[in-house]
Design a protein around this nucleic acid. Sequence first.
DNA 1: GCAGAACTTGAAACCGCTTTGAACAATGAA
DNA 2: TTCATTGTTCAAAGCGGTTTCAAGTTCTGC
Lengths: 359, 359
Amino acid sequence: MNLKEFSHRIGLSPTTVSRALNGYPEVSERTRRKVLESAERLGYTPNSRAARLATGRAMTIGHILPLSKEHEMVNPIFSDFIAGAGEQYSRSGYDLSLSVVRDEDEAEAYRDLATRGVVDGVVIHGPKVEDPRIRLLGDLGLPFVVHGRSSRVHGEYNWVDVNNRRAFSRATEFLLDLGHRRIGLINGLDGMDFATRRLNGYSDALEARGIARDPELVFSGEMTENYGFATTLQMLDSRNPPTAFLISSIIPAMGARRALHDRGIGLGDEVSVVIHDDDLSYFRNDGDVPIFTATRSSVREAGRLCADILLDSIRDAQGERRHVLLEADLTVGQSTGPAPAMRHLLGRDQADAPRGLAR
Amino acid sequence: MNLKEFSHRIGLSPTTVSRALNGYPEVSERTRRKVLESAERLGYTPNSRAARLATGRAMTIGHILPLSKEHEMVNPIFSDFIAGAGEQYSRSGYDLSLSVVRDEDEAEAYRDLATRGVVDGVVIHGPKVEDPRIRLLGDLGLPFVVHGRSSRVHGEYNWVDVNNRRAFSRATEFLLDLGHRRIGLINGLDGMDFATRRLNGYSDALEARGIARDPELVFSGEMTENYGFATTLQMLDSRNPPTAFLISSIIPAMGARRALHDRGIGLGDEVSVVIHDDDLSYFRNDGDVPIFTATRSSVREAGRLCADILLDSIRDAQGERRHVLLEADLTVGQSTGPAPAMRHLLGRDQADAPRGLAR
DNA sequence: GCAGAACTTGAAACCGCTTTGAACAATGAA
DNA sequence: TTCATTGTTCAAAGCGGTTTCAAGTTCTGC
């Protein structure tokens, strides 16, 4: 049933019905009730396609999911982010449009969304250092928010980011305080802005203690389980292995744990691990004492915040650009302990403790 | 720029331009080339909102992502499935609309998508036994495809499923052949159709060998790492622990591995594990010899197939309903070996082999 | 009782595209 | 040359809503 028929059936004009349904003030309460009740009873719902054309608003937010050709991998934090953002969209009557594109087509995909008029705004995922998408969207005049930030990009834009630098410098300091001097960094893909900031945090902390950064202890790559496994093994098998690892996500941390296990090295006693934990719903690092010592920041919450900011920004195009910097607090879990060389000094040598029973 | 202005500028009528752009045959090649070239040059792209209203097609496929209230968890296979399906949508000029809703609102969400006319078809994820959504969508007259199947639902509908029963009976047989008699099953959530079929496959295989199924060895739950950990631990610590585990996903398998490690039990020698592997992009169980012995079936590929079937079904509403049953082949990895009691019989007792170095 | 303000309601234009039906031009057959 | 056919193009009528502008009603205050 369309508006014309519905309004005719209940003896009102399309104008009045439209107003009643959209909450305009110039319709009397009595009429509005009648319209709402009749719509419910007769099962009338306005056709969104028509409303979108008439209003010029798409009532839709766009997300682009680029697939890297080599790895064909989907960012594992994507679904939790979407869950957070999607909740907010629903609440505000917005739909979410997801475009899956090969990564070399990403810029074109944004252009396309803008000119076809199918979205009112977009979210930029996984910004790189000097990310060109920010400039592009500014030029297109399409409202957007970045999940993360992009170093060396001038101009204001909406973003929600974790204080990656602080998180990683704190995590590094924590390990240094435990006596670790050789700390491996298993980081995200080179060029990703968050990875750069994490590396900086790590470097800062080392430098502050006068410790030279060993390039053989720093790795970057896509954060798979296999990547965590391979890099950990490589470092463990080197002439001068680290006594601690800093890992950018819980997924490669699974691989690191496997590598330690394969080498018969105890996690939390012989070797320490600190991870950054995005609080993925299917991979919670919680419990009384979490498995991993971690800097935690919920990516789901970041999704909610991004959505809120973007929706605001669409409603009020003149408003100021907004920024949210989330602090990731360090939670001590079972995966960290004093550096081996320090342990007898502290009277807690656990070299003979059963493997696998962390601390 | 809109069609009216564009067509005026190039000295043609809107009709001809529209036809040229949409590939209709009644426009001459010369004119078509001119239109396409001018559109490129002047940067004209038709407004999709208007096209959708005019054609009555939304050119969009809907996916609903329900969030369970208790767990607030997103199915970890979701993103890979979407990646596969999304690729196909893009290829065919379709958009993907994702609705995030609380699970008790799911039925309403389908109704809403249908009446608002924002999608031409939907994909049903995670069907339960006797899933009411299938009936609902039939009634709504909205084309759909199910990723999975639903037992005890009458009538024809499109589906793409893994042969879960066969996969799990084969996996069970494989373990039985290795001499295992007590096999723990760490399954998906009760009521999920796939979980039921897997349980059946497991039961069938046991029964065929005259082995009674011990209810204390069967668990069902949401497939998180913690769930795998907790259930494995519980079984290991029971009076009569299993010597092998069958696990419904690689994620709880991570938890199982952790539990085994915590108890100092060697994976692949003292205890065997077979998993079902959805071939998640960030969690590949590959390599020369995969970590886990697994029944594998790519969920990404399932996404592609679902998309293809649904798009066909939209184009040809009269066409037959289609079914695809994917066989999951069993790949032997490092996580399985003869049952402990059998090992000396086979002259391969590895009880003293270093832990963690599976076979 | 009446003018003017404050409410309500409706007719019609419009959003930007697609598509029907008609017109016109070019081609071919008779 | 003429008529039928085929090929091309266009004017206008949708698609199903929203919104402007005008008109009709009901209140107020005097």
